Simulated assay, not measured.
Amino acid sequence: MKSSVRSAVWVGVAAAVMIGGTGRAVDPPKPKDESKKPTVMQRKLAHAQRVLEGLATNDFKKIDVGADGLIECVKDSTWKINETDKYLLYSNEFLRRSEGLKKAAKDKNTDAAALAYVDLTLTCVRCHQHLREERISAAPAPTTFANK
């Protein structure tokens, strides 16, 4: 009997700690800076998520609105962060895929919209990979120190 009571007490203590924390002070949440505008990449992600939601629910209006948002991102002055031919190629490809999404939504063609979305996503991945490689190749070589 004593061991079952002891077990129950330990379970209760563990549950209280998990629910209530350890009793240490918790930092209050930091207020959001309302004046801070999302970056173009954050907006691109939000629009892409809207397109995906539209694809999942067969909501062509969401696909269309998301595609419009993606197209607006490309027009944003902060979009163009690199002048390489490869970057410009990816940027133009992104715009074409976004326009393809818009057309597919207008035509109510789920398959075409899904394909455009996949191609758009692959374009994003390739572009971001290119930009990482550009940063790596542009970074100065690490300095090595000889052991004395």
Rank of each mutant, 00 (worst) to 15 (best):
S91W: 14
K30C: 00
T57W: 10
A16S: 06
G66L: 05
N58H: 07
G12D: 02
S35T: 12
H128C: 03
K80D: 12
A112L: 10
P142I: 00
D64K: 11
A48E: 03
F145C: 09
Q42G: 07
V26N: 00
E133P: 11
T144K: 10
L122Q: 15
K36N: 04
A15D: 08
T110K: 11
A146Y: 04
N147C: 01
D27P: 02
K62W: 05
T22V: 03
G21L: 00
D111Y: 06
P140I: 07
R132I: 10
D64H: 13
P142H: 04
F94I: 14
K80L: 11
S137F: 14
L45T: 13
A56E: 12
K148T: 07
L45C: 11
E83G: 06
A48C: 06
T22Q: 04
R132Y: 14
D119T: 13
S98D: 04
A141P: 02
K80S: 14
V51C: 05
D64P: 01
T84E: 09
V9G: 02
C73T: 08
C127Y: 13
H128Q: 10
K103F: 07
T123C: 10
V26K: 00
D59H: 14
P38V: 06
H130E: 01
P142T: 06
W79T: 08
F94K: 09
R43P: 01
V11W: 14
A116W: 09
H47Y: 15
K86T: 15
V9A: 04
D107R: 08
K86C: 13
N109E: 01
T143A: 06
K108D: 15
K37D: 03
G20M: 07
G21Q: 00
K30I: 03
S3A: 02
K2I: 15
D76N: 08
N92K: 11
D107A: 15
T39G: 09
A114E: 14
A14C: 03
P31D: 04
T144E: 10
K62M: 12
D119E: 14
P28A: 08
E53P: 00
G100F: 04
K80W: 15
C127N: 05
V11F: 13
V13S: 05
D85R: 03
S3M: 07
T121K: 11
T123K: 08
T84C: 08
G23N: 01
A112G: 02
N109L: 07
T57C: 07
K102T: 03
D85Q: 06
H47G: 00
A16Y: 12
M41T: 12
A46P: 00
D111C: 05
K106L: 15
A141C: 08
A56F: 11
D119V: 10
S3V: 03
A8N: 10
P29I: 02
I136G: 02
F60I: 04
K61P: 11
E93M: 07
E53A: 06
S4T: 08
D119C: 06
S35E: 13
C73P: 02
W79G: 02
A114W: 10
T121A: 12
T110P: 03
T123N: 10
H130K: 01
R126A: 12
P140W: 13
S35W: 14
